[in-house]
Amino acid sequence: MSRIRILLVIMAGLFLASCKDKSKKPGDEDRPLTFAEFSELFPAAKLPYKVSIETLKEKTADSLALKPKVAAQFLPDTLTAGVFQKEKPRIYPLAYFKTDDLHYVLVKAAGKSSSVAYICLFTPKGAFLNRLLAGQVKPGNTKEITTNIDNRYNIKVNTAEKRSTNYTANREDTYGAYPDGNIALIMTNSTDPGSGGLYNPIDTLPRTHKVSGDYTSGESNLVSIRDGETAKEFLFFISFSKDKGACHGELDGTARFTGANTGQFRDKNSECILEFKFSAGRVSISETGCGAYRGIKCMFEGSFVKKKEPKKKKA
Rank of each mutant, 00 (worst) to 15 (best):
M1D: 06
M1T: 15
S2Y: 08
R3C: 10
M11I: 15
L14D: 01
F15H: 13
L16C: 00
S18Y: 00
C19F: 11
K20H: 12
D21W: 01
D21C: 07
K22T: 05
K24R: 08
G27I: 06
E29K: 05
D30V: 07
D30Q: 06
P32G: 06
L33S: 04
L33I: 05
F35S: 09
A36N: 07
A36I: 11
E37C: 10
S39V: 11
S39H: 04
A44V: 04
A45S: 12
K46F: 10
Y49L: 08
E54W: 13
T55E: 03
K57I: 02
K57M: 08
D62I: 02
A65Y: 00
L66R: 08
P68N: 02
K69Y: 10
K69E: 03
V70Y: 05
A71Q: 02
A72D: 00
Q73S: 11
P76G: 04
D77W: 03
D77R: 07
T80V: 03
F84A: 05
E87M: 00
E87I: 02
K88H: 08
D101G: 01
H103G: 00
Y104G: 03
V105Y: 02
L106N: 00
L106E: 08
A109E: 00
A110L: 07
G111N: 06
S115L: 02
A117F: 00
P124F: 12
A127R: 07
A127E: 09
R131F: 14
G135C: 06
Q136E: 15
V137C: 07
K138I: 12
K138T: 13
N141A: 01
K143N: 04
I145E: 08
I149S: 05
R152Y: 14
N154Y: 14
N154R: 09
N154F: 08
K156W: 05
V157P: 12
T159M: 05
R163Q: 04
S164P: 05
N166S: 10
E172I: 15
D173C: 14
Y175H: 11
A177G: 13
P179E: 09
G181Y: 10
L185S: 09
L185Y: 13
I186C: 09
M187D: 10
M187E: 14
N189L: 14
T191Q: 03
T191F: 06
D192E: 13
S195T: 11
S195L: 04
G196V: 04
G197C: 00
Y199A: 09
T204D: 13
L205M: 11
R207H: 14
T208M: 05
H209E: 14
V223H: 11
S224A: 14
R226F: 08
F234P: 07
L235F: 14
S241E: 10
D243M: 10
K244G: 12
K244F: 15
G245Q: 11
A246E: 14
A255I: 04
R256F: 07
R256H: 10
F257V: 08
T258S: 15
G259V: 01
T262G: 13
T262D: 04
F265N: 07
D267F: 00
K268I: 10
F276H: 04
K277H: 06
F278K: 02
F278R: 03
A280D: 06
A280M: 03
R282F: 11
S284V: 09
S284G: 08
I285R: 01
I285M: 01
I285P: 01
S286G: 06
G289E: 02
R294Y: 06
G295P: 15
I296G: 00
K297G: 13
C298P: 10
M299E: 15
K307A: 15
